[in-house]
Write a protein that binds this DNA or RNA. Structure first.
Lengths: 258, 258
DNA sequence: CAGTACATCGTACTATGTACGGAGTTATGC
DNA sequence: GCATAACTCCGTACATAGTACGATGTACTG
């Protein structure tokens, strides 16, 4: 505990110290002593940014847009956060901190892991913009740490070593992230539904190619079946359940070796 | 085969027909009949863009930068591709099309899947910018289709149904993607290595918080172990191997039920 | 009261994608 | 041969987004 090389990574190209300082800010912290009082708090800024991102997506979440939501000038925003990247870090940490964290201790391990996975999937559904954030390791803010603590607990008592616990959690969360991406893409594709004639306009060169060469027998067959499945409401959640079973079975093999 | 609802999704907000047309362009296709001949081909444009992205990252791969690499004016680029999003689609399809596709038929199924996974991981290592592309389903170009065909073949003979094959492949590729992201983040963090005094400046508020509250017992313990592991060269490939074993074990449980 | 700290925010700059139209080149049809 | 149309190249200008910089106003300190 006295030499904790907890990995510190950040999306921000700014000052790491300032990012951490903001992440771990306290409500009663010593405010500025002179000059006018700020009209908002960092919490309010972050909340406004999250609301805009949830409602309009990350592309629309510009400094101008967030400032507008708060009723302040764009450049005023920079008195709260040093830059956009830091704002993103704060947004991420905040939504992670807001996740429900029920006590899972009495559940069997598979149910615990399922609960963790489901909570993460729900998080992505509620905040789709998170998928557009590229880092797997945000800065170590209170939300990140509380989440990590809670989720690691789901792996306790399974006979895994510390590094294995981290790796197993990473594995589970990686799967959920991939599922969330896939589901989001599918929703986007459905929202872009094409008319039949548009579809034919797009597809005719493709179909010609497929017919000419029969170069893709397996892909044609499987793709057709998968495509048909994807038109049904079945798809995203079923794919998730399939994958989660694979994930849990894979972990079960490991756990039963202990 | 006569009503192939192959899912068509795209990163482009442009004309889907034009995207597909470009993806499936042929070298000997009928060129323009009038006006000066183009100085480059679409292939050359895409190759230049890939080279820039590989070398400098996706953020640096601006239309201006690609045009400069080709020695043409920025706006000339638009006579080859309608926009940046389409260029991205073309880049993606091209690198997928360039993947080696050895015949895996004589290998046992786990080795086949390992080969598929490793090829995908290598692809991300060679083209890290791919991680910044958000879609799980690029447009159906020749590269995407050839890759899909090749990879599905690795799942043949395992007793899986068509939809299951697609889901299993999705599951495997999702894992690889997550691993690639994690490895890339780690490389980035190492390249950002902080001096000891920078580290203390950043970490002291964090350590104070951890010490004050002992609120994160598991996270502290596991995070320390995982952090230490991550400082070693061990980490990324070991995490990948750990996860791949889980993936394969999880699939094995399924396959052995058939 | 003068000086300092601090909040607000307009202006201007950099960077990026691309609409638009001018200039030049090549083919077609009369 | 010429007018017209198709086509390539590309400069200019515009919209958008992040943010540096400094002017203005407010509140505290000695």
């Amino acid at each position: 505990m006295d030499d904790v090389p907890l990995t510190i990574a950040r999306t921000s190209a700014g000052d790491p110290a300032r990012t951490i300082e903001l992440l771990w800010r306290r409500p009663g912290a010593r405010p500025a002593q002179r000059g006018p009082r700020q009209g908002h708090t960092v919490d309010e800024v972050v909340a406004a940014a999250i609301a805009v991102a949830d409602e309009e997506g990350l592309d629309a979440t510009t400094m101008r847009r967030v400032a507008q939501a708060l009723g302040i000038g764009t450049m005023s925003l920079y008195t709260y956060v040093p830059g956009k990247a830091e704002l993103l870090d704060l947004m991420l940490d905040t939504v992670l901190g807001q996740m429900p964290r029920p006590d899972l201790a009495d559940l069997p391990w598979r149910a615990r892991l399922e609960a963790v996975a489901r909570a993460n999937l729900t998080l992505y559904e509620r905040h789709p913009w998170m998928l557009a954030v590229s880092t797997t390791r945000p800065p170590l803010g209170p939300g990140v740490l509380a989440k990590y603590e809670h989720e690691l607990r789901a792996f306790e008592g399974l006979g895994l070593g510390d590094v294995e616990m981290d790796a197993a959690l990473t594995y589970l969360l990686g799967f959920v992230h991939a599922s969330a991406r896939s589901a989001a893409d599918q929703r986007a594709a459905q929202n872009d539904a094409m008319t039949d004639e548009q579809w034919w306009a797009v597809s005719s060169p493709l179909l010609a190619r497929l017919s000419d060469e029969a170069a893709y027998p397996t892909a044609s067959r499987v793709g057709a079946a998968a495509g048909a499945a994807h038109q049904a409401a079945y798809s995203a959640d079923h794919a998730y359940e399939f994958g989660l079973e694979r994930v849990l079975d894979g972990l079960q093999v490991l756990i039963e070796r202990r």
